[in-house]
Design a protein around this nucleic acid. Structure first.
Lengths: 338, 338
DNA sequence: TTGTATGCGTTATCAA
DNA sequence: TTGATAACGCATACAA
């Protein structure tokens, strides 16, 4: 009778202990690879566990331990859905983070539900759903992250790296990226520059500022700004068309992503403008198709693999009580046809 | 002294109960929105909880409850990293799934560590790390999923929909996709067809078979197969170049993704071949840049949003004890320049 | 090196 | 409608 019940249920550590004729803690130790258990017992225990198809209950484990070994990764899907993809870039970043967490055997909780305001972030952490956060794409939430950091919630953010942010950020050197694009335009003798992107996002704004900094080299250079709210392919295309229809004729364009660059090239061609003849163009991210597009797109490269690894590393350091500093990743210009 | 300790610790349900002067179960009921608690008490409890910054411990919750309210989403990062991105498509799918799970307030565990063989899938489920699986991209693992389904592990797979698979699959009608491409080639009078992709993946193989089915319409049509192992942009480009260098001159190409199509167009142009003059081309997925590429790419569209919703729905039905059937999503040809 | 006893923070069961 | 009590399955402190 009691037997029947046992049959139907999943084995617990108690069952394994009984069958292996040891105590429960010994089973626990054996399973977690503790050195404090004799080889014979360990072998016997693992054997029994295998036979019984036993797997440690992770929820009981998490309840008992100080760490949950789970990291919440927050992705700004809103800015990246419905063809509103800035680039596959953000997903390569996600892949990098996923891999780095995997190596450490840490669970990745993706964009947990209901994570809107500051309080939601605090609550999830309090409820021990995750030990900390990795945020992919800072966007417009700088103030919130600042506040979170003040509350000592472990967090690593991919985005703009600013001196006084108060939280740990990892990002490409956006300002330098802008400078590099600007210097190239200078070399090519371009005078009427255009920046395409949403400067509400800090990382994008820094690129714009870098570009303007480069423009200071000569007084007869103008830098125009084409705001793209949703940063989607279609919207970029439309805005670019309108811009040209209004009579504007830039001779240099710096776009927030390679995908956006494709939209620009397309819209400009529609109006008889061809790169590099009529204008120069620099994109961002160096996604694979950029090299083979017609014309091949000049762009700025960031190292996504290193980015993922670094984000995880920084977060782990915080979980260990440290206060790691923000880092800026190397950034370089890849010159191609445009 | 005991007081001091309390101060430093996070409040538990016991603390809230004491402060609100009710019993622990009542707090539990109030917090989970049970109707069996009087409005005044509920109000008082919520008030105290807010004041104390209390958040229910999710691990204790999961330990106690039958469901963990967590779904593991398995992404084949290996096939999609290092510029090896078939398309941003798979990530749009992920976004769709994430959204659908969010709506139901279910956690998304992304590509959990150590999930390689059959046993790993079984163990994670046994250890109550997830109630079930959503697999994005069946790839070469059909046999394993079949086995998992036999063990009654809830699961919904994005991939090839086959009659006898034994597990619940959701996918576009790959065979029809192939047929549609073939019919178009027929209309255009093309005779030397080429299929580009890795037919080891079932969903890709079905497209190939659909294409061959269409080719049966006329005896003088040949269908060649260019195997791409990693399905990366660079490899596709290289393989296509080699193919042409060997003297092959197809007049119709059906590629496994739009990104691959871009690689094809690029490689062919390198060899003096231009679409649609010299050959016709059909891609897959209808990603945004496809419409604006030069030339604009004719492609096959699948509905990613519906796909995500459907995958989640099917999985939830299984968690509720049902045995939902596989579904095939509508698939249509988008005719553009190529 | 092993075992005993205890507690982690909930929810379910049952009785009131 | 509420409360007392008992699981849930594990890991740790401590003693042996």
């Amino acid at each position: 009778m009691a037997d029947k019940r046992r049959k139907a249920m999943r084995p617990t550590m108690d069952d394994i202990a009984r069958l292996a004729e040891v105590s429960k803690p010994t089973v626990s130790r054996a399973l977690s690879g503790s050195p404090l258990v004799s080889p014979e017992k360990r072998e016997r225990i693992l054997q029994v566990a295998r036979e019984q198809g036993y797997a440690v209950n992770r929820n009981a484990q998490k309840l008992r331990q100080a760490r949950t070994n789970t990291v919440a990764v927050v992705l700004d899907f809103e800015s990246h859905r419905h063809g509103a993809i800035g680039d596959p870039f953000i997903y390569e970043l996600l892949a990098g983070v996923s891999e780095a967490l995997s190596v450490r055997d840490v669970d990745l909780l993706l964009s947990p539900p209901g994570l809107n305001g500051l309080d939601d972030f605090i609550d999830l952490h309090r409820s021990r759903g995750a030990d900390g956060y990795i945020v992919l794409g800072q966007g417009k939430r700088e103030a919130m992250f600042r506040e979170l950091a003040r509350k000592d919630i472990p967090m690593a953010v991919w985005g703009a790296v600013m001196a006084d942010s108060g939280y740990c950020a990892v990002g490409s050197d956006n300002f330098l990226g802008g400078m590099l694009a600007g210097r190239r335009f200078l070399e090519l003798g371009r005078r009427k520059w255009l920046f395409v992107g949403n400067t509400v996002h800090d990382e994008i704004r820094l690129r714009y500022e870098g570009l303007r900094e480069a423009a200071n080299a000569s007084p007869d250079i103008s830098v125009d700004l084409l705001q793209i709210d949703m940063m989607a392919f279609a919207e970029t295309y439309k805005k670019a068309e309108e811009y040209l229809k209004s009579g504007n004729r830039p001779d240099a364009v710096f776009a927030f992503s390679d995908t956006a660059s494709m939209a620009i090239i397309s819209a400009f061609r529609q109006n008889g403008l061809v790169a590099p003849r009529d204008y120069s163009l620099v994109g961002y991210n160096n996604i694979p198709p950029a090299a083979h597009f017609a014309p091949a797109i000049t762009t700025i490269e960031q190292d996504t693999n290193m980015a993922g690894t670094l984000l995880v590393e920084k977060l782990m350091q915080q979980l260990d009580g440290a206060r790691p500093k923000s880092v800026t990743l190397p950034t370089k210009l890849i010159v191609r046809e445009t």
